[in-house]
């Protein structure tokens, strides 16, 4: 009798462990996929920037500084090696690029240009997708990290090699304000 009880207990515990392990694997894959989504958008941004720069270069003599900053920031971001390094450099690129987009918004003739208009839209959507992809990554990673910390998953998670993933943080208050600035420029 006692033996059967013990057996039942072991089976129940094993079932719990297997279930927990599988759900951790599942959510970790979601985290990795979310990370990949950000990466895809970053690559796309790197490809688009030279096109925009070429398209607006001739008509923006007096905004040379803004343009230069974007070119330099892009070069730095493309050359980044480690993940934290890339995170920091992409942030610099983000703020330089948002300034450029805001400047172009202010030139109706430039915006109406048939090669600049679609490029602007492409870059705007890429910028939005980067920030939304980060939002989604943060949401799913928070879920995953929480799962690692709570009982009973925390008992076995580290021995199976599950590690916490880093979160994106909004570094300066300026980035949070960007949408408001955008709105006032458009009207």
């Amino acid at each position: 009798m006692f033996f059967f009880l013990l057996l039942a207990l072991v089976i129940i515990l094993a079932a719990f462990a297997i279930g927990g392990y599988n759900s951790l694997i599942q959510i970790r894959n979601q985290v990795r996929n979310a990370w990949k989504q950000i990466d895809i958008q970053l690559k796309r941004r790197h490809d688009l920037i030279p096109n925009l720069v070429n398209a607006v270069k001739g008509q923006m003599e007096f905004e040379k500084g803004t343009l230069e900053r974007v070119i330099q920031a892009r070069a730095a971001a493309v050359g980044a090696h480690s993940i934290p390094d890339s995170m920091a450099k992409e942030d610099v690129l983000s703020s330089a690029l948002s300034k450029l987009l805001a400047v172009v918004e202010n030139y109706p003739t430039l915006k109406a240009n048939e090669s600049v208009g679609p490029l602007m839209e492409e870059l705007t959507t890429t910028e939005n997708q980067i920030s939304f992809a980060r939002q989604f990554y943060n949401d799913i990673t928070t879920k995953y990290n929480t799962k690692l910390e709570i009982f009973p998953t925390n008992l076995f998670a580290s021995s199976f090699g599950f590690k916490m993933f880093p979160l994106f943080t909004i570094k300066d208050a300026g980035e949070r304000e960007t949408p408001t600035v955008d709105l006032s420029l458009k009207n």
Binding site: Q37, P118, E121, E122, T124, T125, N128, Q129, F132, A133, Q135, F136
Partner: peptide, 13 residues
């Protein structure tokens, strides 16, 4: 194209 881009953004979000 703009609409399709926006839809893709929100589905990502």
């Amino acid at each position: 194209q703009r609409l399709l881009n926006i839809v893709r953004e929100i589905s990502l979000a």
